[in-house]
């Protein structure tokens, strides 16, 4: 009970943007360092493990493509959670989190699409096919861009927060569609092979670099996200200070 209330207090402490800034300043260097380290190990593993006997060297694209695709979905999930935070708990940082995550998510999605295309050209003979997995990821990309445009169009963050939260939650239907598209429809894109019932279908030789890269990407996401949230808070403070400056100007004249 007391532990629970402590957790709640810790959580609401975070609601204070100043506390968040202090925390961000403390953890960011560690996160960034860890990200660099993981990427160093991950990339080393990616380039030293053996190529696939069928795919050859192109299999290495997967070490970037798969984590980027995972992150594109995780980032949207984080945004959806933040949207819930905005609408249900009215957490003051939730809106900041959702807003900061959109460009990052768009970048990961773009990376996944590009690396997928690069892999698809030699393997499938075409840059792009309109199969369910690819199409739904492209739709996700468009949704990210749409949300960014919406955020940009409304200069008052308070008003934009609820509207975009509603849109984010509506858009969340796409995430299960992406996840299960390879099982529901018969697609060109191969089904999930790492996380599935009955154990992974991937050789440990490939699994090791993949997992390290996945963790590295996740750390990269958190590093970027915290930094972006910090910037967003700063941006809002600058805005309110400028408004303050405008109000006080010329008053003494």
């Amino acid at each position: 009970m007391s532990e629970n209330s402590l957790a709640i207090r810790k959580f609401s402490d975070l609601a204070n943007p100043t506390r968040f800034l202090a925390l961000a300043a403390r953890v960011l260097p560690w996160f960034a360092g860890l990200t660099v380290l993981l990427f160093a190990v991950g990339l080393y593993l990616s380039f030293t493990t053996e190529g696939d006997y069928q795919q050859g060297e192109t299999v290495r694209i997967m070490y970037v493509h798969v984590p980027a695709a995972w992150l594109s979905m995780m980032c949207y999930s984080v945004m959806a959670l933040s949207a819930l935070g905005t609408l249900v708990w009215r957490h003051p940082l939730a809106d900041v989190a959702a807003r900061a995550a959109a460009p990052i998510g768009a970048s990961f999605t773009f990376l996944a699409l590009v690396t997928g295309s690069l892999w698809g050209k030699p393997m499938w003979g075409t840059w792009w096919v309109w199969d369910a997995r690819l199409t739904s990821v492209f739709v996700l990309f468009l949704m990210y861009l749409g949300l960014m445009a919406l955020n940009r169009a409304m200069d008052e963050p308070g008003k934009a927060a609820k509207v975009s939260a509603v849109l984010i939650l509506v858009g969340f239907v796409n995430i299960p569609i992406i996840k299960f598209s390879v099982e529901w429809w018969n697609t060109l894109h191969q089904p999930a092979s790492v996380l599935r019932l009955g154990g992974s279908a991937i050789d440990p030789e490939f699994l090791r670099p993949l997992l390290v890269m996945a963790v590295a990407f996740t750390m990269l996401f958190f590093t970027l996200h915290i930094a972006a949230m910090r910037n967003e808070i700063w941006r809002r403070r600058v805005t309110s200070m400028r408004r303050q400056a405008a109000r006080s100007a010329g008053r003494e004249a």
Binding site: L142, M148, A149, R152, A153, M154, D155
Partner: peptide, 18 residues
């Protein structure tokens, strides 16, 4: 700047073609 149409046009283009 905020509210400008530069990004919206490209987004619309991509959506229509998609």
């Amino acid at each position: 700047r905020a509210g400008g149409g530069a990004l919206i046009g490209v987004l619309f283009f991509m959506t229509v073609v998609a």
